[in-house]
């Protein structure tokens, strides 16, 4: 699989990253190299192998770890708002979103 500039642009859009021309070119080069290194994995036979094994805990998560439905204290708003919000703001302010 060749990594083209178009692919990088598409992926960058998905990841919400804006790259200038220089960055794009160097990303094409670096990512091509890295992906072809990743391609080594294709040699490995993984038929009949479970993909989820690592994530399963050997402890009873449902009974032992999940949270009971108890309301706790929320945080003070001023401790949560973005530091650039104006004093007294009640919201997180963003550019107008057109729907």
């Amino acid at each position: 699989m060749t990594i083209t500039k178009e692919i990088i642009e598409y992926i960058a859009m998905l990841a919400r990253l804006q790259l200038d021309e220089n960055e794009k070119n160097s990303m094409v080069a670096d990512i091509s190299k890295i992906i072809s290194y990743f391609d080594k994995l294709k040699e490995l036979d993984t038929s009949n192998i479970d993909a989820m094994e690592f994530l399963v805990m050997d402890e009873d998560v449902f009974e032992g770890a999940l949270r009971d439905d108890i309301v706790g204290k929320s945080y003070d708003r001023e401790d949560l708002l973005h530091p650039e919000e104006e004093e007294g703001s009640e919201y997180f302010t963003v550019p107008r979103v057109v729907e």
Binding site: F38, L41, K42, T46, I49, D50, A51, E53, F54
Partner: peptide, 14 residues
């Protein structure tokens, strides 16, 4: 080809 494959490789390595 990549992510799912790597998860399976993770199982084998483990």
């Amino acid at each position: 080809a990549y992510y799912k494959k790597a998860l399976k490789a993770r199982t084998i390595i483990t």
